[in-house]
Amino acid sequence: MASEADIYAALTGIFHDIFMRDDLVLTPDLSAKQVQGWDSFKQIEIIMASEEKWGIKFNTRELDSLRCVGDLAGLIATKTA
């Protein structure tokens, strides 16, 4: 099982790569509304990169429930447990 710190560290790398910004600081309550350029295409990239990183797959219901980075981190923790 990946620790919360490990998940956030890896997600930070994913976000930096996708948004090409090293100044993004991930917090549990960070959402698309707070990040310029975070649209549906970026969301797909984040999900695909996360699935590849942890060797997991998300279903539609899980993806529909994601509202913030904390939701994604929690889902990753559950799926890697």
Rank of each mutant, 00 (worst) to 15 (best):
M1T: 08
A2S: 15
S3H: 03
A5E: 14
A5M: 08
D6A: 15
I7E: 10
I7R: 08
Y8C: 09
A9I: 06
L11Y: 03
F15M: 15
H16M: 09
H16Q: 14
H16F: 07
H16E: 14
D17N: 08
D17V: 02
D17C: 03
I18V: 07
F19C: 06
R21E: 12
R21M: 10
D22R: 07
D23Q: 04
L24G: 08
V25I: 12
T27I: 02
P28Y: 11
P28N: 12
D29I: 02
L30K: 05
S31F: 03
K33I: 03
V35I: 11
V35R: 04
V35S: 07
Q36P: 03
D39I: 01
S40V: 01
S40F: 04
S40C: 05
K42S: 13
K42G: 08
Q43V: 04
I44H: 09
I44V: 15
I44Y: 10
E45S: 11
I47F: 09
I47L: 15
I47C: 10
I47H: 06
M48T: 07
S50H: 06
E52A: 13
K53C: 08
K53W: 04
K53Q: 15
W54E: 07
G55F: 02
G55C: 08
I56G: 04
I56W: 02
K57Y: 11
K57H: 12
K57L: 11
K57C: 08
K57D: 14
F58Y: 13
F58G: 05
N59L: 07
T60D: 14
T60I: 08
R61M: 14
R61C: 07
D64A: 15
S65V: 01
S65W: 01
L66P: 02
L66W: 06
L66V: 12
R67Y: 09
C68K: 12
V69A: 11
V69H: 08
V69N: 04
G70M: 03
D71Y: 03
L72Y: 02
G74M: 11
L75I: 01
K79E: 09
K79L: 13
K79W: 06
T80C: 11
A81K: 15
A81S: 15
A81C: 10
